[in-house]
Amino acid sequence: MIEFKNVSKYYPGDCAAIKDVTFSIRPKEFVSIVGRSGAGKTTLLRLLLKEEPPSEGEILVDGRNVKNIKSKELPLYRRKIGTIFQDFKLLPNKTAYENIAFAMEAAGRAEEDISEDVPQILSLVELVDKADNFPCQLSGGEKQRVAIGRALIHKPDILMADEPSGNLDPLHTWDIIRLLCRINELGTTVILATHDREIINALSKRVISLDRGRVIRDEENGRYIV
């Protein structure tokens, strides 16, 4: 379903964030991408979302080269991918509720769907009483949970989670991980980027290890070894 073929990404200044990466992810798989800070995890996800083009190599999603997605089709493509951004990327002028609702509005969903789904998602991430807070009035963990809610609202085919537990306490972290597992069981492909050793070791799912932009290990039932 997702294929990276010899993908490299160079940033200005000869910095190779990703170097000759090849792997494929089957539909409905749960894959963790691990590696130290700066290993290239976020870059990998950004390439998949077509936020930036790869410098070399090809990325195929559902057999389609991401490079060939026209700018008109790009919004549709992105709606199929739910992303929990490492830096949340919430809209500062919109409340928690509106941030989640916006993704549905942008997709042209009906008003009734929105007023039904958003409260559900909000209670899923335990933010019902913070629904009317703006991002600047939310704690780091609360912002992260809004970001999670927004990523889930589309019922996306692919869920990319970039450090979804970065700002959460252990209790919430496990809630989120359990949530990701459940979503995965319901048929969504999940890509989890993290450097949280405990989570990886407890999950016992497929792990792709990155080091300085290269894949150094790719194993089923992997463990965090760097």
Binding site: L74, R78, A103
Partner: peptide, 15 residues
Amino acid sequence: EEINVMKLVGASKWF
């Protein structure tokens, strides 16, 4: 930055 985020969550240009 807001415009960029809207793009990333799949909003069309005219929206």
